[in-house]
Amino acid sequence: MKAALKLPETETAVTELLVRLRAQVAKAEARIRQRPFAVHPSLLPVLGESGLKPGAAYVLETSGSLLHALLAEPSQEGHWCGVVGLPTFAAEAAQLAGVRLDRLVLVPEPAEQWLAATAALAEVVPVLAVRPFGRVRESDAARLMSRLRDRGSVLLVVGDWPRAEARFTLTEPRWHGLGNGHGRLAGRELQVGVISRRYPAGRSARLVLPSSNGRIAAVESAAPQLRVAG
């Protein structure tokens, strides 16, 4: 730093200094802005990245346990989470999954104004889950995404979204603990897949979501499967 403060004599030295300073600023900015939002360790190999990228949109097929699991980690770190357009969002299951309810805000029925509400929340809420009302226009999506990039927020979309960073799929679900007329639901084992820009072929893993304590977990051992009744 001392050297940088010394006044340079020649013009080339000035340009050099500027280049060096710009690089430093860019590095510092990258450190602050681009730190990804944490995801559960068991989801990391599926995602193939260190977390959810700020300024990106991720598409989910359903609003259930996977959404809770994705909200839980940033929420635990103290980030505010917002849920727009999901009147069926179950707060109790979310709390069980690890979402802090004192840092959660719900806008269950924004109807046509979902985009405006999401944009307003994006100013301050870094993790936003949204179910679009009707079809999403490319231009609306682009406008919202530029706001998100500016603020470093991440968007979790339930439904469809043009130009998503990655899509989560849940397939081959298998529930444990419930028999024919006996038992109770204890957990679900399923195949979680992610098709992302970085991995267009997709990556997947077998996970337990939700497990008996409501959280996401790696598959431990083979459990007896359910058979078709009747």
């Binding site: 719900l106 806008v107 269950p108 924004p110 405006a116 509400a117 809420v125």
Partner: peptide, 23 residues
């Protein structure tokens, strides 16, 4: 700042449209 943003959404959609959940 969070409060200001929430209030803006409330002004847009109505008082009971922005909710905080509790069990």
């Amino acid at each position: 700042r969070v409060h200001h943003a929430m209030s803006r959404v409330q002004a847009m959609l109505g008082h009971a449209s922005v909710l905080t959940p509790q069990i």
